[in-house]
C-alpha cells in the first residue's frame, strides 16, 4: 500500500470516524448539560427574533470596540472567507464532497481559488507569528490555540505545494495534503475548531435567553 493509498483509504476512514464520534460527543454532551430553570416572566413569546439578531450583531464589528479589535476582525474574516472558498470551491475538491455527500456543486476557476488560498495562508501565518510575539497573546494562549492554527495552516501549505507540484513527487504531495486534512479532522472536535459548530447556536442561545429577560444581547 502506497502512502497515497493509505491516505485516501484507511487513514481517511478512521479520521472521519473519530471526527464523527467527537462531533456528536461534543454536541450531544453540550445540549444535554444541566441548565437552571428560568423562572422570570418571558418578555417575548419566542426567542427566535432575539436569537437571530444576536447571530447577526455578534458577527459585525461593535462600534464601541471598533478601534480595539478591528485588526482581528478584518483579518479573521479575511482568512475564514479565503479558507472556505478554497475548501468548498476548488474544482479538485468537489469530487471529495461528492463522494462523501452524494452531491456536488459548481466550482470556481483555479486562479481565483489560489488567490483566496494564498491570502488565507498569509493571514494565518501572520496571526500565528503575532500570537507568538505579542506579550499579552503569549500569556493567554494555550496549546489548543497553537495546535488549532497549525492544523488549519497545514492543509493550505500542502495543498498549494501539491497544486504547484514542487518538492516531492505528485503522489507524495497529494498524500501529504490528504494526511494534513485528516490531521485537521482528528483534532477538530477536541479543540477550539469546534467553534464551527458551536458559534452560531451559542450566539442564538445567548440572544434568546437575554431576549426573554428583555435585555439586548
Amino acid at each position: 500500500m502506497t502512502l497515497l493509498d493509505f491516505a485516501r483509504g484507511p487513514a481517511m476512514q478512521w479520521a472521519l470516524i473519530i471526527f464523527t464520534i467527537g462531533i456528536f460527543w461534543r454536541l450531544v454532551g453540550t445540549v444535554l448539560l444541566y441548565r437552571r430553570r428560568d423562572f422570570s416572566q418571558p418578555r417575548r413569546k419566542s426567542g427566535l427574533p432575539d436569537g437571530a439578531r444576536a447571530i447577526v450583531m455578534r458577527s459585525v464589528l461593535p462600534p464601541e470596540l471598533e478601534h480595539n479589535i478591528v485588526f482581528q476582525h478584518v483579518t479573521g474574516y479575511l482568512w475564514h472567507i479565503g479558507y472556505f472558498v478554497t475548501v468548498l470551491f476548488l474544482g479538485t475538491h468537489i469530487p471529495f464532497f461528492k463522494s462523501l455527500l452524494g452531491f456536488g456543486w459548481p466550482h470556481l476557476p483555479n486562479a481565483i481559488v489560489m488567490i483566496a488560498a494564498a491570502v488565507s495562508l498569509a493571514v494565518l501565518v501572520m496571526l500565528l507569528v503575532r500570537r507568538m510575539l505579542h506579550p499579552v497573546l503569549q500569556k493567554i494562549s494555550t496549546s489548543d490555540d497553537y495546535i488549532s492554527v497549525i492544523v488549519t495552516i497545514l492543509p493550505l501549505i500542502t495543498g498549494l505545494i501539491s497544486y504547484a507540484n514542487i518538492g516531492f513527487i505528485k503522489e507524495t504531495n497529494l498524500a501529504l495534503h490528504i494526511l494534513s486534512v485528516e490531521l485537521l479532522l482528528l483534532w477538530f472536535p477536541f479543540g477550539k475548531l469546534m467553534h464551527l459548530f458551536m458559534t452560531f447556536p451559542s450566539r442564538y442561545q445567548v440572544g434568546a435567553a437575554f431576549g426573554r429577560r428583555g435585555v439586548k444581547a
Binding site: 470516524i17 473519530i18 467527537g22 460527543w25 454532551g29 444535554l32 468537489i94 469530487p95 463522494s99
Partner: peptide
C-alpha cells in the same frame, strides 16, 4: 472515481460512529 474522491468506507460506519459519539455525549452530560 476522481483521485480527490475519498474511499471513506460505508455510511453504516459513520452512522455507528455518530451513535457512539451521541452515547458518549449523553453519558458525559
Amino acid at each position: 472515481d476522481s483521485l480527490s474522491a475519498t474511499q471513506w468506507g460505508s455510511p453504516a460506519n459513520l452512522g455507528a460512529a455518530a451513535l457512539a459519539g451521541a452515547a458518549i455525549g449523553a453519558g458525559s452530560a
